[in-house]
Design a protein around this nucleic acid. Structure first.
Lengths: 341, 341
DNA sequence: TTGTAAGCGTTATCAT
DNA sequence: ATGATAACGCTTACAA
């Protein structure tokens, strides 16, 4: 018999054969105890579990995954987890998938789709059973990668005519339009936009601008900051558009609650009264908007529901239930009126 | 020859043998092109790379990992990534490890060490080449798991007499003592604490209390909120201790900048002037503390440096350079004085 | 209910 | 510089 004795052998790596020997059963029986316990007699199972316990056996999912061609792992790619916008759905998605026996591996892409392909390649190399992606617009390179990988994909936080596969989306243009309508209904005629220039914030801005036009309003100012938009950058941006804000009352849509907070903070420092002179609506309903004073009016999107829905779609597909195309949904949103409008 | 044709066969999963055939070389040569290109002749490499490109080959790291017993994956476990406290080190750690060819898999433990063992088991099942853990105190069950796994471990964000392995720590008690000294140096004699009750916040509190005593001061109030401490909970907590704050001037140490923000917000609403009547110092130097007005005095800890240092230690160990015990370091911290003290 | 044999896709090792 | 072969530790498929 060939004896390897490789140099980097893990010391006492307990394996399934060790457990099997200790319990007096075949390795396959140990595997069954772990994966399909209902197909093993109770006392065999008990013996095996005891052996597992005393030996401190931790199954090797690398080996199991290779053999079964199922990694029981899902990869999630988001721009950042610094923002509650992605933190909530990722958290609930992870929890839901975890309950179903899947681990979620998180990868951060940053903003700018520069090398999403590289990241997706790296992720696919680990053979995830499914993918959760942010946004609904993929570069051709990524599309090709995903197509040849034959992996179920859920995209979230955006909509598109032809998403890659499954989708739990949000119509950002509609959000912008709603905010414009909200302000218009309160008598506003002068509008402004402040915020990031990433693809989704831009969609909100476009929707907002169209809504403003539809209501016969005027966009008196618009200023972008680097995604995802910091408080300090937003304060500076507000200072830049302040001259346009000193005249009649203006309604400002900020691309996120952080941006809104910066705008509120700077406006008050400049003596621009919120909301009497400047009404502000943010996006995201972060804790900050509830916790600050004045509490900020904002657009609430149920991130937790989004993650849950994504998990539901993916699990259905993984269970073999579904065909492509059926799993598309939009998550609702609504404006929460607080003290800044 | 046995032909499997399993039901769940991935459609056109290109494998190393396909690339080898297309390039007219042995699979091993393809492997070398990918892993040790310097050991392959340039034109062979070129042919192989072309085959890889045209076939759209994505290496299977599951198989590679099983064979080489190196997953090229590091697992990082943090309580939450909602807080910048963990976000920064995780981000810089991920970047640094990525540059060295490792993927970082993130797992969230939440607060409370209830089932850290379960999580660690699940993570170890994927055979990471290394582990980044939060805190320096492990339950016996986890200690056992880690010991038998023979995996390099870096712990961060805390100190202990006997860390599991490597450590990039912070002495929270010292932080608390420093804050007390900072306040005392400014003439304060009445002190208060507000914050979370997790292990590290508690260490800061203890250090603070000892510092207060050492300087002959009085702790007039202390109130805890659930970890990690939300703005709203903190506002409520401040309201609870407000009666103790109406007399002479008090210096408050908040367990995080979010808690500090809540305290500042509520204090002003209650007519308690900051900093004249109530001086406040937070912890973490979050963007919020810089961006808000008044800007908050806080303790700055270089989270990015912490992640970088953790990566450095781990990489040194993975390269086989080091023995256990040498890789211990404390990251420095300092108080940033702003407008709330 | 349990066991046997083969193979998952890659890399370590030894040979040329 | 390149190739042949035997693992890596598990699970599928089939047999008993």
């Amino acid at each position: 018999m060939y004896v390897a004795n490789r140099s980097n052998t893990r010391f006492s790596a307990v394996k399934i054969t060790d457990v099997a020997a200790a319990a007096g059963v075949a390795p396959m029986t140990v595997s069954r105890v772990l994966n399909t316990p209902e197909r093993v007699s109770p006392d065999t199972a008990a013996r095996v579990l005891e052996a597992i316990e005393t030996l401190g056996y931790v199954p090797n999912l690398i080996a199991g995954g290779l053999s079964s061609r199922r990694s029981r792992m899902i990869a999630a790619i988001v721009p950042t987890i610094a923002s509650p916008m992605f933190h909530e759905p990722v958290q609930s998605f992870t929890d839901a998938m975890g309950r179903a026996g899947y681990h979620v591996m998180l990868a951060l892409s940053g903003y700018g789709e520069a090398d999403e392909a590289t990241l997706v390649r790296a992720v696919l190399a680990r053979r995830p059973d499914g993918l959760l992606l942010t946004g609904a617009h993929r570069t051709p390179a990524v599309q090709r990668l995903l197509a040849t990988a034959h992996v179920p994909v859920v995209e979230m936080w955006d909509t598109a005519e032809h998403p890659t596969d499954m989708l739990v989306g949000l119509d950002h243009a509609e959000v912008g339009a709603e905010v414009a309508a909200f302000f218009a209904a309160r008598g506003h005629t002068r509008f402004a936009f402040l915020g990031a220039s990433d693809i989704r914030a831009t969609a909100r801005r476009r929707g907002f601008e169209q809504g403003v036009a539809a209501h016969g309003g005027t966009l008196v100012a618009a200023k972008t900051v680097n995604a995802p938009g910091t408080i300090l950058d937003s304060r500076e941006a507000l200072r830049a558009i302040a001259p346009e804000l000193t005249g009649r009352r203006t309604a400002l849509f900020a691309s996120s609650d952080l941006v809104a907070f910066g705008a509120i903070t700077e406006a008050r420092l400049l003596g621009i009264e919120v909301p009497t002179q400047l009404a502000i609506c943010g996006f995201g309903d972060f804790e900050l908007s509830r916790g600050a004073s004045p509490a900020a009016t904002t657009v609430h999107v149920d991130g937790t529901a989004m993650g849950l829905l994504a998990a539901k779609h993916l699990l259905a597909r993984l269970a073999g239930h579904a065909t492509a195309g059926v799993h598309r949904s939009l998550v609702p949103f609504h404006i929460i009126e607080r003290e800044t409008s």
